[in-house]
């Protein structure tokens, strides 16, 4: 027995396992903020990553461009066919936008849930062990990013939300993370909007799960799913994806839809963090 306790290696091992469990427990609990040493390490490492990452991205981008040129002819043909369609749509949208602005003036309602201030950010790092899909970008608290903000691609499709911020970097959790706590209030666009919550991701079908839709809502395939802006800091009207399939939920009280996301979660270089304008204290004071 005394021999057992004198075994230095064993004691070191046991102490470090206790330490390990404590640390894991600490990092799993719901944290609003990272501790300051973590923020400091993140910022420093983020800076180093940025230095290495930029040239690498540039070189890769060049090869990608060469690859793209090969497909240009075919794509051009398809796009030309759709150009007319687009022009009509564009005119319509402009008309509607104008009308919307005029009506808003009538109502003296200047701010809406839809308005957001875009914060451009570049990806500087990606979690290499792909258990959790985390992406690190080069904008942080100093640039106005806060926890839980929506993150979209340059083509305005939702990709994820901000998980943690440090002064100069932010960690983004992609929608494809199988995290039950990652809830987003959304609705299905139709004659009557059906509201629900995005909860989790189906790895096999590559689809998001839109749960808690009222049982009497009529949802068809191919309908678009957008953020509702009701759940907190997300702006309204960011596109998420389109409905693949609808089925009754576990207990049959609500419906569940599989939503095919528009954004490609894997191919992300630049993102936009959407800072909702309505939350800005300056504007509230006016």
């Amino acid at each position: 027995m005394p021999q057992f306790f004198l075994n230095k290696r064993l004691i070191v091992l046991l102490v470090s396992i206790i330490f390990l469990v404590a640390l894991i427990g600490f990092s799993l609990k719901e944290r609003q903020n990272l501790t300051w040493p973590e923020q400091f390490i993140k910022d420093t490492a983020g800076f180093v990553q940025f230095i290495f990452h930029k040239p690498a991205q540039f070189v890769a981008g060049f090869f990608e461009n060469v690859n793209d040129i090969k497909h240009t002819y075919k794509e051009n043909k398809i796009l030309k066919a759709r150009l007319e369609e687009y022009a009509v749509l564009e005119a319509q949208v402009q008309e509607l936008e104008k009308e919307n602005a005029r009506l808003r003036e009538f109502l003296d309602k200047k701010e809406s849930l839809r308005d957001f201030e875009p914060i451009q950010a570049t990806v500087v790092g990606r979690n290499p062990d792909r258990w959790q899909e985390l992406v690190i970008v080069n904008k942080g608290k100093r640039h106005g990013v806060t926890k839980d903000m929506a993150v979209i691609t340059p083509s305005r499709a939702l990709v994820g939300k901000v998980q943690h911020v440090s002064p100069f970097t932010a960690t983004i959790q992609l929608l494809s993370a199988s995290d039950q706590k990652n809830r987003i209030s959304a609705f299905v666009q139709g004659e009557e909007n059906a509201f629900g919550l995005i909860e989790g991701y189906d790895e096999k079908r590559k689809a998001l799960l839109l749960r808690r839709i009222p049982f009497d809502a009529k949802i068809k395939e191919k309908q678009k799913v957008l953020t509702s802006g009701l759940g907190g800091v997300f702006p309204k009207g960011l596109v998420i994806g389109e409905v693949l399939e609808v089925e009754p939920d576990e207990y049959g009280l609500t419906q569940m839809a599989y939503v095919k996301p528009y954004a490609n979660f894997y191919d992300i270089d630049d993102v936009i963090i959407a800072k909702r304008k309505i939350d800005d204290p300056k504007e509230e004071g006016e």
């Binding site: 396992i17 640390l23 894991i24 990092s27 973590e38 943690h164």
Partner: peptide, 15 residues
């Protein structure tokens, strides 16, 4: 560094 920067679950890779 790996834990803090990439995974945000402390201790796993350090150990």
């Amino acid at each position: 560094l790996y834990d803090v920067f990439y995974t945000e679950i402390l201790g796993v890779y350090m150990f």
